[in-house]
Design a protein around this nucleic acid. Sequence first.
DNA 1: CCGATTTAGTTGAGCGTTCAACTATCGGGG
DNA 2: CCCCGATAGTTGAACGCTCAACTAAATCGG
Lengths: 151, 151
Amino acid sequence: MVLMTRWLNPDEQHTWRAFLTASRGVMDALDRELQRDAGMPHAYYEILVRLSEAPQRQMRMSDLAETTGSSRSRLSHAVARLEAAGWVRREDCPTDRRGQNAHLTEAGFETLAAAAPGHVEGVRRHLFDVLSPAQVDQLRRISETIAAHLT
Amino acid sequence: MVLMTRWLNPDEQHTWRAFLTASRGVMDALDRELQRDAGMPHAYYEILVRLSEAPQRQMRMSDLAETTGSSRSRLSHAVARLEAAGWVRREDCPTDRRGQNAHLTEAGFETLAAAAPGHVEGVRRHLFDVLSPAQVDQLRRISETIAAHLT
DNA sequence: CCGATTTAGTTGAGCGTTCAACTATCGGGG
DNA sequence: CCCCGATAGTTGAACGCTCAACTAAATCGG
């Protein structure tokens, strides 16, 4: 069956490009800032954050991949780097011999604590400070809706 | 001067993480789909789109970097690949001997034409179809505001 | 309890991006 | 006219991500 393409009308075109520019722009800016101030990309920062919030500051690799929205492969490579930096340690999981627990080290926690204020400031500067409270609320609903529909 | 960090409150935290999940999710999905269906990442697709819309289907490298939101270096590498694929050709700029004009080839145009319907479908599926018209409008304003404040 | 399937995680190659360094040309002030 | 700073673009190394292939252990069906 052949279907006609429903092209984006000019309004949709605008919206789409604005969304691209905004989301890419925010992520690029935060990535640059974190790289400059903490020596790590945003994805790595997020891994440390999730670990810091977990009980015992540790998590199974799979769960960590899940919550950070990365593939197992990506996480594996990332944790390897974080381990080399001394910020994370991997330990065998006692209840599942296939499993690994990623554990935030004290050095990792301190690095995170040092980087966090600057990062939060960046998030405010690029996102929350430029939007009205109503827009922040709209953005939350919109983002949750989009996220819910991702396969 | 020492300043207290204004941490994100739970609501802001939620919004921020939803935004991360949604924007990363949409981009990752479109990237995967374009890679699978057209053999190129979304960034390369965007370059071809911009060239296809330009007069004579050509643009100065700098302008192309500007509109696609990439660094000169990134664009240089990207166009080198696109040229190797036969989709873009670089020519010396007649009015500025430092300059290069990136020119969309016929093969590039055809590849783009073949990829476009599927891509537009993806954009609808992941973004426009899941939001109400009011939300689409909100998203446009929000994105424009954020984009306007990026340095 | 055994074979098949699923799940956990790693690995290496290939690709795209970043960053800093570099060449070449342009344009304005003395 | 010449010098100097800005502009245009490229390059190579280092890094992060993707994809497919792989090992090993758990689990499921009979």
